[in-house]
Design a protein around this nucleic acid. Structure first.
Length: 203
DNA sequence: AGCAAGATTAGC
DNA sequence: CTAATCTTGCTA
């Protein structure tokens, strides 16, 4: 997981995100999982859209920790967003997980998100996937290699990955640092437009 | 102490 | 396209 941030964002497509619901949650102990199908890179030092760009604060502290840990923040009064840290201690950089395709614990996710939400939509969007998996500030700083929030690198063939501009930013939005699996129905159609292949992508 | 902005989402 | 919703961080 220690590699440059854009590479990590790309490599995370197809990886498995596994969440073991902790004791205080409904359905405690149940394992939820999904395949990561959309990510965004937030680069160290040079990226004005990265939360680390203006230096450490109480809120963004964990983005400066070290590679492979969770940086979770609360936004717009309603939503949590989950990031994977990517850079050496003291350097702020991370990958935002924007969408997963649910693969286990689907009924638990539906209970959290809403009775009539289609499976493909359960983990579509950074706030939605956190809601579906019970991820909040208590996950901030968690180690992705062990514990209740784990990422398992994809085994087997890497999926076809596309790239495009980032979403929802006022600065540096056009940097092509969003990666996604265009074949996944958990990535909404408008996010699939304006895409190119990543420089080293195969089919 | 006040204020503006924000890596979003659901609903018209 | 717009409102909702509230925490954080900056400015005075």
């Amino acid at each position: 997981m220690a590699a440059d941030t854009a590479s990590v964002a790309r490599a995370l497509i197809g990886a498995r995100l596994i969440r073991r619901l902790p004791g205080w949650e409904p359905d405690a102990g149940v394992a939820l999982a999904g395949r990561i199908v959309e990510t965004e890179a937030y680069l160290p030092l040079v990226d004005p859209a990265c939360h680390g760009y203006r230096g450490p604060t109480k809120r963004n502290e964990s983005i400066f920790s070290r590679p492979g840990f969770a940086y979770v923040y609360f936004i717009y009064g309603n939503h949590y967003c989950l990031n994977v840290t990517t850079e050496a201690p003291g350097i702020g950089g991370a990958v935002l997980i924007r969408a997963i395709e649910p693969s286990a614990g689907i009924e638990c996710m539906r209970r959290r998100r809403g009775r009539h939400v289609p499976t493909a939509a359960l983990g579509s969007g950074p706030g939605n996937l956190c809601r579906a998996m019970g991820i909040d500030l208590r996950c901030n700083g968690a180690d992705f290699r062990c514990g209740d929030l784990v990422i398992r690198p994809s085994s087997g063939e890497p999926p076809a990955t596309s790239m495009g501009p980032r979403i929802g930013l006022k600065v540096a939005a056009r940097w092509p640092l969003r990666y996604f699996d265009a074949a996944s129905s958990s990535v909404s159609p408008f996010r699939k437009s304006l895409t190119r292949r990543p420089p080293n992508a195969d089919g």
